[in-house]
């Protein structure tokens, strides 16, 4: 196999916590030595709970956070300390909340076309409107809405516009951070179908981040499971879902709710204690409670 499109090697991303007891600033290791690859045209699902570091990893990959150590390589070029303008175009991101990731004062047309200002060679000067219309059609938004602003669109339409904006730069890798989590179930299914179709049509590679195991299973070729800053298990999607090896993956899968018409309520064994540590809980537990 040839070299992967994206390659993350031993990446650490750390933050300084606010000054705590004794004036010492604790270091939080949000990403703690992660290895991850995404091949050309491949979709890798990244699952984990809040605080697992999956969003920080995504932000580190695209350069929104700076890795403390390790390397991020894209298409054979080391991009750990910054992306060249040319390469920057190849990776685009879609965020969770389209209402806050789209500028409310811009029209749909300007939002989709904005990236072309930084990459003027991409679309010929007179062709912007036609290309915007084409992109909107591709993501299932009526091109007649190009003059509207985000507030006049539904949540699902906004997320489609955010995807059109990402596609406008003809990326090779799309990083989706909880891109369907804020949407209603029926709209979520629409966006999942759209992403699956675009991937086929455009040969896009995807890093698809979500806390929802069902959503990740829908799209992913491979899945990586993140817990407390580390990837604890990675493997082909079907294998990971059918025979998870890491105890954390097993716990996560066992606790995932399924739509089960035959579940007889109550369907849970009485298990009264919170046993999975979260980071905030770790700190609470560490503090003397007496």
């Amino acid at each position: 196999m040839t070299e992967p499109l994206l390659s993350v090697r031993e990446v650490w991303t750390t933050f300084k916590a606010p000054r705590g007891k004794g004036g010492r600033r604790q270091e939080i290791q949000a990403v703690a030595g992660v290895d991850l690859t995404v091949a050309e045209g491949e979709t890798v699902g990244l699952v984990g709970e809040s605080g697992s570091g999956k969003s920080t990893l995504a932000r580190t990959i695209v350069g929104l956070e700076r890795a403390r150590s390790g390397t991020v390589t894209f298409a054979g070029t080391d991009v750990t300390t910054g992306w060249s303008r040319r390469l920057r175009r190849d990776v685009q991101m879609v965020f969770q909340d389209p209402r806050s990731s789209l500028n409310p004062r811009m029209t749909v047309r300007d939002i989709v076309a904005e990236g072309w200002r930084a990459h003027p060679g991409l679309v010929r000067p007179g062709g912007h409107d036609a290309e915007v219309a084409h992109l909107l059609e591709q993501v299932g938004v009526d091109p007649a809405l190009a003059g509207r602003r985000p507030a006049e669109l539904s949540g699902g339409q906004c997320q489609r516009v955010a995807i059109a904006r990402a596609l406008a730069l003809r990326p090779r890798l799309l990083v989706c951070d909880e891109a369907v989590s804020a949407l209603d179930v029926s709209v979520q299914a629409q966006i999942l179908a759209l992403l699956a179709r675009l991937r086929e049509e455009l040969g896009l590679a995807m890093l698809f981040i979500s806390h929802d195991l069902g959503v990740v299973r829908q799209l992913s070729d491979r899945v990586a499971v993140m817990y407390l800053g580390k990837i604890v298990e990675t493997g082909p999607a079907e294998q990971l879902y059918s025979s998870p090896e890491h105890p954390y993956t097993q716990t996560l899968l066992a606790s995932a709710l399924e739509l089960d018409p035959d579940a007889t309520p109550p369907a849970f064994a009485a298990e009264p204690l919170e046993t999975t540590p979260s980071r905030s809980e770790d700190r609470t537990d560490a503090a003397p409670s007496a």
């Binding site: 999942l192 699956a196 299973r217 829908q218 879902y241 899968l253 399924e258």
Partner: peptide, 20 residues
């Protein structure tokens, strides 16, 4: 039909067209 399954390899979710 629009709920994705976790524990079985299911058909792709079937979206409801349009918006509420």
């Amino acid at each position: 039909r629009s709920v994705p399954a976790v524990h079985s390899r299911s058909a792709p979710v079937a979206p409801i067209p349009g918006n509420p």
